[in-house]
């Protein structure tokens, strides 16, 4: 029969093992996604017409590259399955995933802001879109307070209008002008 100390030691050792199994499981999913994607792309590349002038056509190199990628993913996936089986347990996946997302909530929110910013730039123009993006992104990271609002406002004005002017006047790079706002 196990003593209390032995039990807690065994539990302590199983925590990293379970964690390792979860990480390997996440990687296994990536190997499967990349593997299946590369098989599809390899098949697509093989459908490209061959060249009359050379032994290799336009599709040969991508076909080769994606076939190699599929092979590598297969080997990595087999190794990942072995590692998961060695680790023995794969419990608490949902909890771990929600913890993972929670730790990265600001990163994902920032990325969401970036996507919206890039999407509206052709409409709103660089200066306006950048001003709004900088305001939101800065407050998202720093939190909402009187001080951060003032600081963010100043920084947003400088880096939206200022950068646009710098690139237009000094580097002759004209950043996107919007349909709704030409700045």
């Amino acid at each position: 029969m196990m003593s209390k100390a032995d039990k807690s030691a065994a539990a302590g050792a199983s925590v990293p093992a379970a964690s390792r199994a979860r990480t390997e499981f996440a990687r296994l999913i990536s190997y499967i996604v990349f593997g299946l994607g590369s098989v599809y792309l390899s098949v697509r590349a093989s459908a490209l017409p061959t060249s009359r002038w050379e032994p290799l056509g336009a599709g040969s190199f991508p076909q080769l590259v994606f076939a190699v990628l599929a092979g590598l993913c297969l080997i990595a996936a087999v190794r990942a399955v072995i590692d998961i089986r060695k680790a023995g347990q794969l419990d608490g996946l949902a909890t771990a995933l929600s913890g993972w997302i929670k730790a990265r909530r600001i990163s994902f929110a920032l990325f969401g802001c970036l996507v919206v910013y890039l999407s509206v730039m052709p409409l709103a123009g660089f200066s306006l879109a950048t001003f709004v993006f900088l305001m939101i992104a800065q407050l998202l990271i720093a939190g909402l307070s009187k001080k951060t609002v003032v600081q963010s406002l100043i920084a947003a004005v400088i880096f939206s209008v200022g950068l646009n002017m710098l690139f237009a006047e000094v580097f002759n790079v004209f950043l996107p002008r919007g349909v709704l706002f030409a700045g």
Partner: peptide, 14 residues
């Protein structure tokens, strides 16, 4: 970070 991260992101976009 509140200044540097979004600003560098803007520089990347440019």
């Amino acid at each position: 970070k509140q200044f540097i991260v979004p600003t560098v992101m803007i520089c990347c976009v440019i």
